[in-house]
Amino acid sequence: MSKPVVATTSLAGCFGCHMSLLDIDERILDLIELVEFNKSPIDDIKVFTKQCDIGLIEGGCCNSENVEVLRAFRKQCKILVSLGECAIMGGLPALRNGIPIKECIDEAYLNGPTVSENTEKILPNDDELPMLLDKVYPCHEVVKIDYYLPGCPPRADLIWNALIALVTGDEMELPYEVVKFD
């Protein structure tokens, strides 16, 4: 039987969740025996080359590209897992949710204390750039998400336990110390 295929991505995240995945230390050797990675920053495969079994999503949706990638993951993966606070509730990027988008952009490109060289007052307007959404959305408000692993980042043991449970089909171990929101 072929190995289960895992894909991962970071949407509006900081890659901290991916770092936490690497924090499983030498168990990563067991992991590559157990699963095969497809589209993921870990192996630098940029486009899906086959249907995947498990998709790990880090980060929420803050722009149109995030939404597109997330929808592609939903299409390509049998099981989608929201990895970390940002995927689950928007996280730190969602701190802007109470502020009108125009104010955010003005602060970043016109009025911020570190803005000094934008004398022509240009706001990002290239067609190539993804459009910002009105607010940052949790992944499960955009597509169906099957499982949630909270934490900032989720503890390495939590990610490991979840992957093992998904691959073996056994019930997941959830000790008190590994389910944390920070």
Partner: peptide, 13 residues
């Protein structure tokens, strides 16, 4: 062991 709230986030101001 709350993994995610079942309700939509309101993000109130």
């Amino acid at each position: 062991t709350m993994m995610v709230p079942r309700y939509p986030y309101l993000f109130p101001e």
